[in-house]
């Protein structure tokens, strides 16, 4: 099964699909830094280079602005030539993400979800899997996206999954929209259930006992959201800013105090002695808190330990680049499970194929044996494959092998 990964970033989706046994034949993204990391970890592949005019625009604006139809004219034929069986991808979700600035439907990046859809419906592979934030479902963009997919004959599975059900200790909700040509809605649901992991990992499972009992991740918002987590809990969503915010002091919130008390861990409060029991409102220096470095955050995002974040040759990505790649990536364990679900669906489908009475004349098999010198195993294979092929063309009630062959093609 050939897979094309759109908006591939550093390769989280591709990696999981590869582990599930798929062949990644193309990976596309706007960010050269991310593509370099993708290439370093998928040496067999060589991601498609960004068109030059696009690279220019990207450098100039540091952001891809006009996803005009000109892009599609360039990309659709290129991707079509790769003849993928599956198109996967997580179009940029920032316009709809609850983290950071939200432009929603009016954000120009929201056009990239539509670009994914238009490319997919034009190339028209049998399957596609799109990943995004659940908030997308409430948008006008999503309405358009699903309408386009339906118009081109895809049955849709629309499902919000939690990454901790699929091997990553993050409590991260993701929308999976999966399409299959000619299927009924919900076609992948039971297989997504089957591939759910039994064990929901916690922070400690990934970082080990050595990390200590606490994990600090500065809350995004002012207010009551805590920033301390026990390492026997799951961790909050890793975003591009997860490692930041340790230079300025942190003011403890009541929810933090509850976590600190539950592990009985001492935290140094500015201007107080070591025996002081921290209270909400106390200021602590954030410099020495157990934040987790880049490597640890990548592990929490379910990347393998040997993932190369600094490709040889070329410019090394900055720390911020890498954090953005990790934050934007589809957790590989999730994409692997999605790929496995698709595999199970296909196996189930094959088993369902009805037995068609073998309408071929017995002389055919004699001919195979005597004239073509086929052995019994090979004759049996022809019988089986012929029956399956004929099941596909059976509704057309054709009698001649010539017509059947044409219909099959």
């Amino acid at each position: 099964m050939k897979v094309v990964d759109l908006f591939c970033g550093c390769g989280g989706f591709s990696h999981g699909m590869r582990k599930a046994g798929y062949n990644i034949v193309g990976a596309f993204d706007f960010k050269p830094e991310a593509l370099a990391v993708h290439a370093a970890n998928n040496p067999a592949l060589g991601p498609s280079p960004m068109p030059k005019w696009m690279a220019h625009r990207y450098r100039k604006k540091r952001e891809f602005v006009h996803a005009d139809l000109g892009n599609l004219l360039q990309w659709v034929p290129e991707i079509s030539q790769l003849k993928p069986d599956v198109i996967v991808g997580g179009p940029p979700c920032q316009p709809f993400s609850p983290f950071g600035r939200r432009g929603g439907d009016n954000d120009e990046k929201s056009l990239l979800s539509l670009a994914f859809t238009i490319i997919t419906t034009s190339v028209h592979p049998r399957f596609f899997i799109m990943e995004n934030v659940p908030e997308l479902q409430k948008t006008e963009t999503f309405r358009k996206v699903t309408e386009l997919f339906r118009n081109s004959g895809y049955g849709l599975t629309q499902r919000v999954v939690t990454t901790s059900d699929y091997g990553s200790p993050q409590n991260r909700n993701r929308l999976i929209l999966a399409g299959c040509v000619g299927e009924t809605d919900g076609w992948l649901n039971e297989y997504l259930d089957q591939t759910r992991h039994e064990h929901k990992p916690v922070i400690r499972d990934v970082l080990g006992e050595g990390f200590g009992p606490l994990f600090f991740r500065r809350g995004h918002y002012a207010g009551q959201r805590r920033s301390f987590f026990r390492t026997d809990e799951r961790c909050p969503t890793i975003t591009s800013t997860t490692g930041r915010g340790t230079r300025s002091p942190y003011v403890l919130r009541p929810a933090d105090i509850r976590v600190l008390r539950s592990v009985g861990e001492g935290i140094t409060v500015l201007g107080k002695g070591p025996d002081y029991v921290p209270q909400a409102g106390d200021t602590i220096p954030a410099r020495n808190l157990p934040v987790g470095g880049q490597e640890e955050l990548a592990l929490l995002a379910s990347f393998p330990a040997n993932w190369k974040w600094a490709p040889e040759g070329g410019r090394a990505p900055t720390k911020a680049d890498v954090m953005q790649m990790i934050g934007n990536a589809v957790p590989p364990t999730l994409s692997e499970a999605v790929g496995e679900s698709l595999r199970l669906y296909r196996i189930g489908k094959m088993e369902e194929t009805p037995d068609v009475p073998d309408s071929i004349h017995p002389l055919f098999y004699e001919w195979l044996r005597d004239d073509k010198a086929f052995d019994e195993t090979r004759i049996e294979s022809v019988r089986r494959h012929g029956a399956r092929a004929r099941a596909l063309v059976a509704p057309r009630a054709l009698s001649m092998p010539e017509q059947e062959l044409k219909a099959f093609d």
Binding site: F364, S381, V382, R384, G386, A389, P401, E402, E404, L405
Partner: peptide, 18 residues
């Protein structure tokens, strides 16, 4: 798999022409 199915169809066609 698809190739095997096509081959089976093709063999039947070839036989019908023989």
């Amino acid at each position: 798999d698809q190739a095997a199915m096509r081959e089976a169809m093709y063999l039947a066609y070839e036989w019908s022409q023989a």
